[in-house]
Design a protein around this nucleic acid. Sequence first.
DNA 1: CAAACGATTTTCT
DNA 2: GAAAATCGTTTGG
Length: 201
Amino acid sequence: MVLQESFYTRADVVQIARDLLGKVLVTQVNGLYTAGMIVETEAYAGIADLASHAAHGRRTNRTEVMYSKGGVAYVYLCYGIHHLFNVVTNAADVPHAVLVRGIEPIDGIDIMLLRRNKNRLTPALTAGPGSLSAALGITTNLTGAPLSGPEITIEDRGIITADADIVAGTRVGVGYAGEDALQPYRFSVRGNAYVSKGKEI
DNA sequence: CAAACGATTTTCT
DNA sequence: GAAAATCGTTTGG
């Protein structure tokens, strides 16, 4: 079933990041259906989190969508090349978000291969935030799109991820955030090949 | 209005 | 291991 708004509007963004492991991210872009299980996430805890784009309550055109009520997409362009997909959480005006960093392909693998210009399935296809966005056809024009569909949804297909199979660690690429870079806000499925190789956990 | 830079990935040496 | 690719956003003048 498709996750309801009540899943996203909860106050604890770290808990949501953990809960997203094992859920299935589904996109339908240009009529092409692709889906994959989320295996790696990072929480960005709003104004108090120096690693967040909304640190100190910064509010700009780019970050505005993070202030939406939970349950919409926040996609932003990094290094001019990569589209990074986030899930906006919490109530309106609380700019929390969860970055999805890795998925395990489930449906539409042939489509993903075409989009990534590859001809065989390897973990590199969807490991890493830029890679999975490209594979699923996610671009910045999905920013603000509701996760209730039709273009993008997150589903619970009954996959259970035990606590023992969840690895917590520090976030990748946020060294500029000082103390907050040390927060255990990164979660991944233990041993899964589609977890990105960014830094060590 | 100009300049620097980034929640990354790929490619070259 | 190092560096390029590449552009919207943000910041400074």
